[in-house]
Design a binder for these strands. Structure first.
Length: 345
DNA sequence: AACACGGGGCA
DNA sequence: TGCCCAGTGTT
């Protein structure tokens, strides 16, 4: 883009022409441009936070089926909302969505960026997206796609959030803010992809500084990431794969979800000490080991050894509870053992 | 400004 | 295996 203001209208026009021709047909893009259904847009935007469209789409269909209106969402217990969100990750999104639904039912659907921004779980990105797509407000979104597209267009290897926002504000067409936002995101998702961008199919390649450099994929530079933490823990399966003792997880990690009672193996302690602590806490007796499962969660790698036992609190119906992948893996050990016992009988 | 927060797709 | 995904809230 070279920063030359004179090229801006041409880039904008090429981008919008491409979008009108090649824009994706997505289930939340219903209603007129700039006047989309705010509930659908809001739910989709939250679902798509750090989640790829192909995946978010599946959950969107399921979620809208279960909760067709914001009133239905607000009227539903949080446990059922989390069950619909099960497996999608970042469960604070579901908790905030449910809380916000209550706010909307009492105070009405927001109609401005500031109104949306005030809701829990709605940050700068989501507020700009809903305000532009559903309310026709001229707000430029700033997400991973926008960051990558603009970094390449301008040849910026280390784009700060403020830098990206300023470029996005420049590019936004005040006459078609919603279409402009969707266009950049569609371009980033289908053409200006992280690896192996399809520059031959790009409507703005003529202005792209990164393409001119010969290494478009090198923009922006990869982010440095925090090291993954190794975590060891023990769990107790009291009951079976259908009915077992489940506890509600507290705090930020998988908060709100149900799971097998677990104790972390801390510091230099032996695994059997953590297991003893767990059994004592539950008033249960350990009868055997079922096996070990591992589960990666971006920032940590959990190794969970699962034991069978007797006693303890009342069992609950597993299928009706919202569980993390880790607990589904742990419960699968039960079925694996049953199959093994059957084979040896 | 730096972390924590899930889970999966893809090279 | 490593990087990234329509980010947000907390410290």
């Amino acid at each position: 883009m070279k920063g030359a203001a004179s090229t801006l209208p041409a880039v904008r026009a090429a981008l919008l022409a491409w979008f009108d021709r090649e824009g994706r047909d997505l289930p939340w893009r219903v209603g007129p441009e700039g006047g989309r259904d705010p509930y659908r847009v809001w739910v989709s935007e939250v679902l798509l936070q750090q989640t790829q469209v192909a995946r978010g789409r599946v959950y969107f269909e399921r979620f809208l089926e279960a909760f067709p209106t914001v009133q239905a969402l607000a009227d539903t217990p949080i446990e059922a909302v989390l069950k619909a969100w099960e497996g999608c990750g970042y469960y604070a999104r579901a908790r905030n969505l449910h809380r916000a639904a209550g706010v909307i039912v009492r105070g009405g659907m927001p109609t401005t960026y500031d109104g949306w921004r005030a809701l829990p779980g709605v940050g700068p990105y989501t507020a700009a997206a809903v305000a532009s797509l559903a309310c026709g407000e001229a707000r430029a979104v700033n997400d991973g796609n926008v960051r990558r597209v603009l970094a390449r267009l301008c040849g910026e290897r280390q784009p700060s959030a403020a830098w990206v926002q300023a470029r996005a504000d420049d590019l936004l067409d005040p006459a078609r803010p919603g279409a402009c936002n969707e266009a950049v995101m569609d371009l980033g998702a289908t053409v200006c992809t992280p690896k192996a961008p399809k520059c031959g199919a790009c409507p703005v390649s003529a202005w792209c500084a990164a393409l001119g450099s010969g290494e478009p994929a090198a923009f922006p530079a990869p982010k440095v990431r925090a090291a993954v933490r190794e975590v060891r823990a023990v769990a107790l399966l009291l009951g079976d794969a259908r009915e077992a003792v489940l506890e509600r997880r507290e705090g930020t990690l998988l908060g709100g979800l149900m799971g097998l009672p677990t104790e972390e193996v801390v510091g230099g302690e032996a695994e059997r000490d953590a297991l003893a602590r767990l059994a004592t806490r539950l008033g249960a007796a350990v009868t055997g080991e079922l096996g070990t499962v591992t589960h990666g969660m971006t920032h940590r790698r959990v190794s969970l050894t699962v034991y069978a036992g007797t006693g303890g609190p009342p069992r609950t119906w597993v299928e009706g509870a919202a569980l993390a992948r880790l607990d589904h893996k742990a419960l699968a050990l039960w079925d694996a053992r049953q199959a093994s016992l059957f084979a040896h009988a």
